[in-house]
Amino acid sequence: MSTRTTDLDAGAGGPGATARRTTLLGDVRTARWADRLWTAVQAGDEYSALDLIDNALDDGLEPEAVLLDVVGAVQRRVGTEWAANRMSVAGEHVATAINDRVISSLPIRRPAAPRGRIAVACVDQEWHALPARLLAETLRLRGWHVDYLGAQVPTPHLIGHIHRTGPDAVCLSSSLPTRLPLAHGAITAVQAVGTSVMTGGLAFGADGRYARLLGADAWAPDARTAADRLAAGPLPRPSPAHQTIDDLPHLGDQEYTMVAGSSARLVRDTFHRLEQRYPTMKGYDDEQRERTAEDIAHIVDFLTAALYVDASEIFTEFLTWTADVLTARGVPARSLVPGLDLLEEQLRDFPRARALIGTGRDVLTDSPRPRHAG
């Protein structure tokens, strides 16, 4: 009898199967609403977007599901479509603004007794604010008092806010690995005043490896997991003896400091050397020249970030992503290689930097480019 019950529970019947069917139906339903919201944001139709969210709530969809499984899913699609050259920068901005307006329209009730107080902020120079906004609103829905500080919060201002309000924890968000040095400083500064830090966002790695490396007290891969973790109990208290330099002993070679300090010169000199060695650049218009300089600057930024955490994948994943973006726009991925060669020439005295560049060049020249979905 017990065997039959186990079989039913794991197979076509039983409470386990019922839960799975319920989850599957919920996934299908939220996917349909996400498709409808996607149609609205593509058209730049804010009014339709707001109407359909009202309809989704009337249909019984929970506000948290609207936030994370509808709005969040659409915003991820916005990024994918832009990278594949199927959405312009202007279209991306319009879609993000509509999603932000939709979030503001969701009903949030004031809790009778808040669970506690959480500060949610983006790391200094991090302008991708929507992931942090989704977390802030999820926590509000779950009964927390939330101070949402928004994008690009300078660390001294964050610390001032902590002194004034005394939150139970700070949630720091960053999407770009180039912000990891600033994130490290923010984590350490917040911990120095006795407040625990949870980090989240793509910058910290899909598995949170850079959050752990930089000494964060907790990490979460998404807003729902972060809210669950905060509900489970207080975060670990930071050690009062924690020092930033203790986390990253490899910084003792000074490569990061010296390369980061000369980044403007590296970008300028690499651009000028490209002009000298590749006469076709003389025919570039102003926009092409500006884009080329931006690409070089991004390469240098990601190189310095990889040096900071001593992780080649930060550099190679950026190059792979950039190559995909260029390929989608009809520019060969190999066009990045000359810039890498010129950077390597200028960094001959920096073995870690040269090794990173060599690995990046190998990725660009040896790996086949994946095709984008049509």
Score class of each variant (00 low, 15 high):
residue 170 V to E: 09
residue 188 T to H: 13
residue 168 D to M: 14
residue 119 A to R: 02
residue 136 A to G: 14
residue 163 H to R: 11
residue 121 A to N: 01
residue 204 F to C: 04
residue 187 I to K: 02
residue 195 T to Q: 01
residue 177 P to N: 09
residue 121 A to C: 03
residue 214 L to S: 06
residue 105 S to K: 03
residue 166 G to C: 11
residue 200 G to Q: 05
residue 160 G to R: 12
residue 156 P to Y: 13
residue 182 L to E: 15
residue 214 L to T: 04
residue 212 R to L: 00
residue 128 H to D: 13
residue 132 A to K: 03
residue 118 I to G: 05
residue 129 A to L: 03
residue 140 R to M: 07
residue 113 A to Q: 14
residue 188 T to W: 00
residue 198 M to R: 04
residue 122 C to M: 04
residue 116 G to M: 09
residue 187 I to E: 03
residue 108 I to S: 06
residue 206 A to K: 12
residue 185 G to A: 08
residue 201 G to Y: 05
residue 111 P to W: 14
residue 144 W to E: 05
residue 172 L to T: 08
residue 128 H to P: 06
residue 121 A to R: 01
residue 199 T to A: 14
residue 146 V to D: 02
residue 154 P to H: 11
residue 127 W to M: 15
residue 218 A to K: 03
residue 141 L to H: 07
residue 189 A to C: 11
residue 139 L to E: 10
residue 175 S to F: 04
residue 199 T to E: 12
residue 164 R to E: 14
residue 162 I to P: 02
residue 202 L to D: 06
residue 141 L to S: 00
residue 113 A to M: 14
residue 110 R to K: 15
residue 134 L to G: 02
residue 161 H to D: 11
residue 211 A to S: 14
residue 215 G to M: 03
residue 202 L to Y: 07
residue 198 M to A: 10
residue 213 L to I: 00
residue 176 L to N: 10
residue 138 T to P: 02
residue 184 H to D: 07
residue 192 A to M: 04
residue 137 E to W: 01
residue 129 A to T: 02
residue 175 S to V: 14
residue 105 S to T: 04
residue 135 L to Q: 08
residue 150 G to R: 15
residue 163 H to I: 07
residue 145 H to P: 00
residue 129 A to V: 08
residue 135 L to S: 10
residue 216 A to V: 07
residue 185 G to M: 02
residue 210 Y to H: 15
residue 149 L to H: 11
